[in-house]
Design a protein around this nucleic acid. Sequence first.
DNA 1: GAACAGGCAACTC
DNA 2: GAGTTGCCTGTT
Length: 271
Amino acid sequence: MQELSEIRLCAAGELDLEKTFECGQCFRWNRRDDAYIGIVRGRAARLFYRGGDVMIECAAEDIPLWHHYFDMDLDYSAISFGDAGEYFAACEEFGRGIRILRQEFWEALCSFIISQCNNIPRIKGIVESLCQGFGEPLEFRGEIYYSFPGPDILATLSPGELAPLRAGYRAPYIISAARAVSLGELTPEALGSREEAVRALCGISGVGKKVASCTALYGLHDMTGFPIDTWMKRALANHFPEDFTPEVFGEYAGLAQQYIFYYARTNGASS
DNA sequence: GAACAGGCAACTC
DNA sequence: GAGTTGCCTGTT
């Protein structure tokens, strides 16, 4: 049993736990009573509010890891998108407190391959089965959790061995991606610029523009990434000019995308 | 039973 | 290159 610390991570206004964990960017944080518990890079943490602060309970030596994961070096309140219209203003207001998490590259790639044509509860279920089946167990607050399995172990599997996940046609995609990453063909270091990264990712069977763009934004923290899925498509068609391009949102377009997506998903794309 | 869900690949023209 | 279709599975 390892020693856990409870420390202040930031002010409550800087990180909205529910929005950040449930806006669709990640799949491994679960609410437990009044807190969220998650596993990242094989390490566990529990986050909750106390007074006006966000508190984190984790191993003391992991504090830098979490600080990085929650992108604490960036002052989100200082980010401005200028005047992008009334609809976007509503999205921005609604999404305030969302932070773009610095997720692991492989986990993001694999999770968003699984996400295609799927809903969040099912994505979470498949990801959880994947972790329980092939991840490493770890103990946290008296319970057992599982790490996200690395590409090396998944690269050795056959689609049949992934069958219990019920991932369907995505199973061979997971394996082909695992092989590419495991062989070193695709590592965050080798991917270079955003355009190069997206192009390289699209070379993997089962990875198209949308999944590549999500992987770049969430797994490489490419904040200019602007994934467009069916929700975004509808929101853009209904509320933005025909000649809209993500560039209008500048270097943090990915955050703007997250605000729009979260608003559209929660309130309906047409409203 | 049919339609659909946070895509993609393969195939058509 | 734009448009169509099948794909596993689960839910409505």
